[in-house]
Amino acid sequence: MAFITISGYPSSGKSKRAEQIKAALEQRLQDPSYTGPKLKVSILSDDTLNLDRAVYDSSRSEKPARGALFTAMQRQMGQDTILIIDSLNYIKGFRYQMYCAGRELRLRMCTVYVVTPPDICKKWNAEREDGKSYAPETFDNLIMRFEEPSSMVRWDSPLFTVLWTDEDIPGDDIWKSVTEGIVKPPNVGTQAVPKAPTDALHALENTTTLIVSSIMSEQSASQGLGGPTTLNLTNTLNPRIILPSRNLTLSELQRSKRQFVSIHKKAMTLGTTEKGTVDFSEESIVDKFVKYLEENLRP
């Protein structure tokens, strides 16, 4: 359904805002006037994953921690869930990665930027008694590396800013964003790319060779008259092809075959998102190669 990215300095009050958002959304979902789909609101955070704040002390420990957060996020994303990601989310590349994952699942998205001055964050961090404070050096490093969300980029939009002095969050705007916001369709950059089967090249070579041989045989029998011709490849494969009214040479057909195979090798290696499928069945190869020959053989 949707997910909300919380971003802000360490110890800026992000978890408090995440709880406020969760409460505001659940209140609207339970309202008798709400007639939409049944949804649940969940918060995913470093705490729910039991990630100690010490993981941010070095890039060596932070990278797998971000990976664990991203994996858990993918597991919990769904059409029946509004997921709130309560973490630092201070790297714009990571926010973009989450955006791509949400777009692939056709989810609505928004970002909530919790704005608190660094000196207040530092004070709150030092006063924490729950064992969830950051080491002073780590805290300063995270402040320095923080990449501020921007409403100008698509992966942070729509962006809602909540100041440390605000008593509440913009609940109405967030609700509208996650229930009525634009659902962006997956694009080539976010779609999973299907690959051809392992025997695709073998099938491609054998089938095109069989067609070339069949054309040469039919041409010899018809004295090169051309026109609509049925190729008897197998008991079940008997495609019709319109041949030019001239004698086709074996070298000419072989050249067309090599060009056709070369074109389709790229699809085998890279895959394709055309109609969401890659079809290298014998029937599909026959159909494609026959059409290719009809379009490319000189009259």
Rank of each mutant, 00 (worst) to 15 (best):
V188R: 11
Q191P: 00
V153T: 15
E148G: 05
P194I: 11
P228M: 03
I182D: 05
L231M: 07
Y134Q: 03
Q219S: 14
E167G: 15
A203V: 12
L204R: 02
V193E: 00
K176D: 10
T209W: 00
G189C: 07
P158E: 05
Y134N: 00
W175S: 08
A135T: 11
Q191K: 15
S220M: 07
A221H: 09
L210V: 13
V153M: 03
A203W: 04
D173A: 15
T229M: 09
I182R: 11
W175G: 04
E205I: 15
D140T: 14
E148A: 09
D156Y: 08
E205F: 02
T161G: 01
D168M: 04
G226L: 00
T179A: 05
P197I: 10
S222I: 05
P158C: 10
W155E: 05
W164S: 06
V212W: 01
G171E: 13
L204W: 01
D173N: 11
A221D: 06
N141Q: 11
T165A: 05
W175A: 08
P197M: 07
T138D: 02
F146L: 06
Q223A: 15
L225R: 15
A221G: 00
E218D: 03
H202N: 09
S217M: 09
R154K: 13
T165E: 07
K132W: 03
V162Q: 01
T198W: 00
A135N: 14
E180T: 13
S150Q: 09
F160L: 03
R154I: 12
P170V: 12
P170T: 08
Q223P: 00
E147F: 10
A192I: 12
P197E: 01
D199L: 06
Y134R: 03
A221S: 11
E137M: 11
P197A: 06
W155G: 02
I174K: 01
E147V: 11
Y134A: 06
S133E: 10
E180Y: 04
L210G: 02
A196R: 05
L201M: 12
D199Y: 09
S217R: 14
T138V: 12
A203Q: 11
T229P: 06
D140P: 02
T229C: 14
L210D: 09
N141F: 06
W164R: 01
P186H: 08
V153W: 04
D166Y: 03
T230I: 13
I143V: 15
A196C: 09
W155Q: 00
L231A: 08
P149C: 10
I182M: 08
P194M: 07
D166T: 04
L159W: 07
A192E: 02
S213N: 13
D140A: 15
Q191L: 12
E218L: 07
W155D: 01
S214H: 05
E147A: 12
D156W: 06
S213M: 09
P149K: 09
S157Q: 05
E148I: 09
G227P: 08
R154V: 13
N206V: 10
F146P: 00
N206K: 13
S213D: 12
W175R: 08
